[in-house]
Design a binder for these strands. Structure first.
Lengths: 128, 128
DNA sequence: CAGCATCCTCGAGGATACTG
DNA sequence: CAGTATCCTCGAGGATGCTG
């Protein structure tokens, strides 16, 4: 099972399904994580985040933040205010992730129309 | 690894949950899509891909390839050989996606140990 | 060889109610 | 305000068998 490293020497993209990239993808590919990371350009309160993510429930947002905190991407800080407050912010590790992600966003913006056109053409080809 | 890009500290990352990046993430974040893309450094036959993805079923691989084809990232070509064959390859659009993805892979490789350490520490703190 | 047709499992995500 | 605690839905993914 020790797979050899014969994969994609041409392209030079070191992705393997059992590799570390899989782990990161699993971390980010849920419904809200990336939106949360993008919103944490400054420290934000729990309900502030919740209001920003239209439709998220408390339970799911809590789970999302816990997972990001667990991986060291987000820091959680309890404020000893009158009603207790909790502040979430990006860690340096979390901030460093924004840069590679921005490349993906840029690609998306540049190719979205192309993708949509392909999808539309495919659907018409299959249906009609 | 401190990039001199000054984008990370500011909002400069144009991600929104209702934006196009969401669409791309939904496309790539399934269990096999990225592995398939990485494996298509050259045209590959269906069963060739299936053998490479350890554990994937025919049904799921078919669906994965259909989705990638629908978005224009992968091309499907039927070979009129003795037993019919099908060849899958990256489109230029699909190839262009590998570059931004490689940034994500590089980040992952550079920070995997850090992430794993955070997760371990978190689990012990919470008492798992 | 490369599928499609069924059936089934399992967990992410949501609805709702309660609380320190 | 920022959470838990239950319960439920829904679809991705898997198992298995059949076929042009």
């Amino acid at each position: 099972m020790a797979t050899t490293l014969e994969t994609s020497a041409t392209v030079g993209i070191g992705y393997r399904s059992d590799g570390p990239s899989r782990l990161i993808l699993d971390q980010l590919a849920d419904k809200w994580s990336m939106t949360v990371l993008a919103f944490l350009d400054r420290p934000r309160r729990f309900n502030e985040i919740k209001r920003h993510l239209d439709g998220v429930t408390q339970r799911v947002l809590t789970h999302t933040l816990r997972r990001l905190e667990r991986s060291g991407l987000v820091a959680r800080r309890v404020l000893t205010t009158s009603p207790i407050g909790v502040e979430y912010s990006l860690t340096p590790l979390g901030e460093s992730l924004l840069e590679p992600l921005s490349h993906l966003y840029a690609w998306t913006d540049a190719n979205l129309d192309d993708i949509r056109a392909h999808q539309l053409a495919y659907d018409q080809r299959v249906r009609g």
